[in-house]
């Protein structure tokens, strides 16, 4: 059953940046876009097991720190080699200054 889990405070992430969030043995990446919106995806690149939170956010793209694999973190879409499999995304809301992720 899905539940909303607090990932971090809204101010913990800079604009156009990403942060790692681990919960119940799983790892997630939480993003703050240049437009000050928040998003969340699985934390590991679908190409190799590399934490996306160490990567670079550019507009709506997260680039894997290891192989330059690029995803649209808003939709999870893989944007070309070396990534071929989309990222799973999660609903996010900001309540009372906290970033919450809906996780099953």
């Amino acid at each position: 059953m899905a539940e909303w889990i607090e990932a971090c405070a809204a101010g913990d992430i800079d604009e156009e940046d990403v942060m790692r969030f681990d919960h119940a043995g799983r790892t997630f990446a939480v993003y703050r876009s240049p437009d000050d919106e928040y998003f969340a995806t699985d934390g590991l690149c679908t190409h190799e097991r590399v934490h996306l939170a160490d990567g670079l956010v550019m507009d709506d793209i997260i680039e894997c720190p290891k192989h330059n694999g690029r995803f649209n973190y808003k939709t999870g879409a893989a944007k070309g080699a070396p990534v071929c499999v989309n990222l799973k995304t999660y609903p996010v809301k900001v309540t009372a200054g906290k970033v919450l992720i809906e996780i099953e």
Partner: peptide, 21 residues
């Protein structure tokens, strides 16, 4: 294979600046 490698600790803010295109 596909292991997690050692890397030197670098502050996120600094690394972000270094990665800028």
């Amino acid at each position: 294979a596909s292991a997690e490698w050692y890397h030197t600790e670098v502050a996120r803010k600094t690394m972000k600046e270094l990665m800028q295109r």
